[in-house]
Computed example of a mutant assay.
Amino acid sequence: MSRRSLSTRESILTAAERLFAEHGITAVSHRQIGEAAGQGNNFAVGYHFGDRTALVRAILDRHAEPIERHRVRMIESIHGRGEVRDWIACLVRPLTEHLAELGSPTWFARFGAQVMTDPVLRRVVVDDAMSGVTIQRVVERLNHCLPALPVPVHLERGELARHLISHGCAERERALAEGTGRQDTWERTATGLIDAITGLWTAPVTPAGR
Rank of each mutant, 00 (worst) to 15 (best):
D127R: 01
N143H: 14
H98R: 06
T117G: 06
L91N: 02
P150V: 10
L142R: 05
V138Y: 01
D128L: 07
W107R: 05
G158S: 09
S104Q: 11
R123A: 12
R137C: 09
E97T: 12
T96M: 07
G158R: 04
G103R: 07
A113Y: 00
S131T: 13
S104H: 09
M116A: 13
S131R: 13
L155E: 14
T106I: 07
T117S: 10
T134G: 02
P94I: 03
T134W: 06
E140Y: 12
H154E: 11
L121G: 05
R141P: 03
T106P: 00
P147Q: 08
M130F: 10
T117M: 11
H154I: 12
Q136P: 02
I165D: 00
Q136Y: 08
F111E: 01
H144D: 15
E101M: 11
G112L: 07
W87Y: 15
A109P: 05
P150G: 10
L146Y: 09
W87T: 01
S104I: 06
L91R: 02
A148V: 11
E101Y: 07
E97L: 14
T96G: 07
H144T: 12
V124E: 02
M130H: 10
H144K: 12
I165L: 15
L142S: 03
V126P: 00
R157D: 07
A161Y: 04
V138Q: 02
L99A: 03
L102F: 05
A89H: 00
P94M: 03
D128A: 13
I165S: 04
V126H: 05
M130S: 09
L149A: 13
V126R: 04
L102W: 05
R141S: 11
A109E: 02
T117K: 13
V151N: 11
S131I: 06
L155K: 14
A129Q: 11
L146F: 11
E101A: 15
L164W: 11
V126M: 08
V153N: 04
